[in-house]
Simulated scan of single mutants.
Amino acid sequence: MAFLGAEERVISFPWDGRQLTLPAETYLLQYGYPNFFFHITTAYDIIRHVGVPLGKRDYLGLYDGVFQ
């Protein structure tokens, strides 16, 4: 129930010394998702760099078994 009408909300946050205000959908698609995937990818890269044996299938785990 907390998400009912969430697409109608307005998100406001500081950006480069000013206040940026966006509709929730715009915030999610243009700021939230890219920021989330940047951090997930960076964590994956760091973990691989320190020697953990991860591969593409570990990153794309959602698809594991779909194409077999």
Rank of each mutant, 00 (worst) to 15 (best):
M1G: 06
A2Y: 01
A2K: 01
F3S: 09
G5M: 07
A6Q: 03
E7C: 02
E8N: 15
R9Y: 10
V10I: 14
I11T: 02
I11M: 08
I11R: 01
S12R: 12
S12I: 05
S12T: 15
P14S: 05
W15S: 15
W15K: 12
D16C: 09
G17V: 03
G17C: 04
R18V: 11
L20G: 02
L20H: 09
L22K: 11
L22M: 14
P23Y: 00
P23N: 13
A24Q: 07
A24S: 08
Y27I: 06
Y27K: 03
L28E: 05
L28G: 04
Q30S: 14
Y31V: 15
G32I: 00
Y33I: 15
P34F: 07
F36Q: 14
F38G: 10
H39G: 08
H39C: 10
H39E: 15
I40Y: 06
I40N: 09
I40E: 12
T42W: 11
T42I: 06
T42L: 15
T42V: 13
A43H: 12
Y44R: 13
D45G: 15
I46A: 13
I46G: 03
I47M: 11
I47F: 06
I47D: 06
H49Q: 15
V50N: 05
V50Q: 09
G51N: 10
V52D: 05
V52F: 07
V52L: 11
P53E: 07
G55K: 10
K56P: 08
K56I: 07
D58C: 02
Y59G: 02
G61C: 01
G61Y: 11
G61N: 03
L62Y: 08
Y63D: 03
G65L: 00
V66G: 00
Q68N: 12
